[in-house]
């Protein structure tokens, strides 16, 4: 707990604590290790009745097989395109809004916070059917821009929540000095606030990217053209194809799909405990 109580911790309790941490880590990290190890096993080793944690010989053929799968590479491209476009749009839209939320006591603030809450409570099934009906006349069903727009709107709550906290942490005095010099509000935001917000913008961008990269439900309903499918959709279909699952290449593709999120998370993890919650703690 605290250092004060830590000092009094007896050796037995200490050992138990380490054992508990170890137990947690095995539970949380072992599955990924197993996935990676599976992806490096040859098909023959895979079929073995007694599985081993470490592959006997490291075999990269699953990766080459997975990448030869035409649909997979295309879906990788689609996922990248969608995630990047979503991230850019979210930043453009979220920055001015979160600025306004943090700085002005306007009536829009409670409305926005209300919307953020409501958007969390409502099951997506209720939204996806009308979305479908709205996007159809706009010729946006089954298109990448359609999905990007939907992701934009559904990533906004979290982005606003995060970014608000960062904006609030920027000292007001700097802006006021600029305002005295006659700079307009937009100018102030771009020239003064944005540079100071860089860590916040980067964190928001990464989060948005990850959530778009991982998203499944909207993509499942909105993208039917096999050429437009995102990585999670293709992976999900892999599993079911007539019960003939090629686990090796599937594991390899799964590892590839996890890499971007994992890398971003490694970058983000220092901020996670502090920055992420600044919005929440302020309530």
């Amino acid at each position: 707990m605290s250092e004060a109580s830590g000092m009094r911790t007896r050796p037995v309790a200490r050992v138990l604590q380490y054992a508990a941490v170890l137990g947690y880590l095995v539970f949380l990290a072992f599955p990924l290790l197993w996935l990676i190890s599976s992806s490096l096993k040859s098909p023959r080793e895979f079929a073995a009745i007694t599985p081993t944690l470490l592959p006997k010989n490291v075999d990269f053929s699953n990766y080459t097989n997975a990448l030869e799968e035409q649909g997979l590479v295309r879906s990788l491209g689609n996922s990248l395109q969608i995630s990047i476009l979503t991230t850019i749009l979210v930043l453009i839209v979220a920055l001015p809004v979160s600025y306004a939320l943090a700085r002005f006591r306007s009536r829009l603030r409670p409305i926005t916070n209300g919307w953020i809450l409501v958007s969390q409570v409502f099951p997506v099934i209720l939204i996806v059917i009308p979305l479908f009906m709205i996007l159809r006349p706009l010729h946006l069903t089954n298109t990448i821009p359609g999905v990007v727009l939907v992701y934009l709107v559904w990533s906004l709550p979290f982005a606003l929540w995060m970014l608000q906290g960062y904006v609030a942490a920027v000292p007001r005095e700097l802006e006021e000095a600029a305002a005295v010099d006659g700079a307009s509000r937009i100018r102030t935001i771009v020239a003064i606030v944005m540079p100071l917000l860089r860590p916040g913008l980067i964190a928001t961008a990464m989060f948005t990217f990850i959530s778009a990269w991982n998203e499944f439900f909207f993509a499942l309903v909105l993208l039917q053209d096999p050429e437009l499918k995102t990585l999670p959709l293709v992976l999900a279909r892999f599993v079911g194809a007539e019960g003939q699952v090629q686990f090796g290449p599937l594991a390899a593709a799964s590892v590839l799909a996890t890499v971007p999120s994992l890398v971003f998370f490694a970058f983000l993890q220092r901020r996670l405990t502090s920055g992420l919650l600044s919005g929440a703690v302020k309530g």
Partner: peptide, 27 residues
Amino acid sequence: MRKVVTALLAASALVTLAACGGNSDSG
């Protein structure tokens, strides 16, 4: 204030562009 409007117009233009830019020629 005019600058604000221009900036916003630019931003929303981006949104619309992104929305219409893709390949929507299914048939």
